[in-house]
Design a protein around this nucleic acid. Structure first.
Lengths: 240, 240
DNA sequence: CGCCCTTTTGACGAGCTTCAATTCTGGTGG
DNA sequence: CCACCAGAATTGAAGCTCGTCAAAAGGGCG
């Protein structure tokens, strides 16, 4: 077993991008990763209104935070990607305010939570701050963007977040969400999502086939939207 | 000057509802409140993309977290009420991910942030957890509810939150938001907000005049919507 | 190869927006 | 005390975005 897990592990890569992890941090992470388990698609990681035992680290695969209305309508609150923390919170006797489900096959492990080395704690805090920023972005998408804008904005967000974990490059990444998932995420219907995607294809904005999404001319799309990268800390992204 | 500030102060009342504040906590709060300042309407408390100096406690009046799109569209992310924390976060070199503006005349003070007594820290954590839950509620409103449902759901949320601070009772509270503000909050136009409100009046769901909003038959509205109170901790709301 | 999930297509309708006026309201100064 | 003003609320007509319903075509996996 490699001691500095190979170039590879996306989750580790993301956390290292968030803070300058030291040996102690890497050690506890490796220990946690050693206790990882595999989950099938559509498996529950956290259930709304139930106690949260401890935080979970998503190592591989995609997951969603979701909420149901009494009549069956579903809103997907956000998407969770490798390296994201699930159920990290600090109030007493924490209870989940939403359900978390795997979208694909996934690997998770308990997030180290006792005697957390300071640099890892830093990564956690950064992660929490980014999560909140993404929530705000989601609110803006749903409240004030057209279907087409929402879709582009989401794709750009996913791209940037996946790139952090080394899972996206050259404007392209493995898209694990179905059009129906996008619909429930973006407040649309699957039918309309489909129509918008075809429009985007016609406009040459994207290619999406065989589970791979490609964004053409990232820069152009970004300033079409007035896209700004998430920015929650004057010391991040680090330039070193 | 009263030592246990009179029954009154709404912000204090909210914090005391969140955690069982001890004498030490009340002391630092009073010290902070003594340094409060008054703000006119439409004053900036936090500016997007700028450093956050420290957390602020909203004592009186309403404020909004808001974000602008490049073409001028505005999305109000959420509403801030007396007792709410503004800019409370933990990452290094924190930068605001949204702008915070007063909606009405308001009073604020720096939130105690050094040597925070444990019970106050508990209240902070509870407050942060509730904020996040409200953000998720907002996402659900925008993504999967009709205009009418959004409005009702928002009114119920405001009612419950204001009641915590002692600012709402018997289904009624002082409504500081204009219809245009509601529109930017709920992802609608002011015109449509107006139409929905009139429908709600015709249906006998609400009365809204002279700045006072009254919700008729809270219970009925709640289960019409399948309303569930925010629930983020097994130990809250406390029954003692 | 066959089944099921996902994507795609069409026709139609509803909800919400847009634009443009008009009326109302609360606060101000004479 | 009332006239006045600016912001807020209200109204109407017309149109576009997106939803609904239903059915067909495609694609991946056992």
């Amino acid at each position: 077993m490699p001691k500095h897990p190979e170039p590879a592990d996306p989750a580790l890569r993301r956390l290292r991008a968030l803070a300058d992890l030291d040996a102690a941090a890497l050690a506890v992470l490796e220990a946690a990763i050693a206790r990882s388990r595999c989950l099938a698609p559509h498996q529950e990681i956290l259930a709304e209104r139930e106690r949260i035992a401890g935080a979970t680290l998503l190592l591989e695969g995609w997951a969603i935070r979701t909420r149901m209305l009494p009549d069956g309508r579903r809103q997907i609150l956000n998407i969770l990607l490798p390296g994201d923390l699930i159920g990290h919170c600090h109030q007493d006797a924490p209870v989940a305010s939403s359900t978390v489900l795997t979208l694909t096959r996934a690997r998770v492990c308990p997030a180290p939570d006792r005697l957390v080395p300071p640099t890892l704690e830093q990564a956690y805090r950064m992660s929490v701050a980014l999560d909140e920023a993404h929530d705000l972005r989601q609110i803006t998408r749903l409240g004030r963007m057209t279907a087409h804008e929402r879709m582009l904005d989401l794709f750009l967000e996913l791209y940037d977040r996946l790139a952090l974990a080394g899972l996206a490059q050259h404007g392209s990444f493995a898209m694990a969400a179905t059009q129906e998932v996008l619909a429930d995420l973006l407040g649309l219907t699957a039918v309309h999502v489909n129509r918008v995607i075809q429009q985007m294809r016609r406009l040459g904005e994207i290619d999406w086939s065989r589970g791979r999404l490609e964004l053409h001319d990232l820069a152009a799309q970004r300033d079409l939207l007035g896209w700004q990268p998430v920015y929650v800390s004057a010391r991040w992204p680090r330039r070193d």
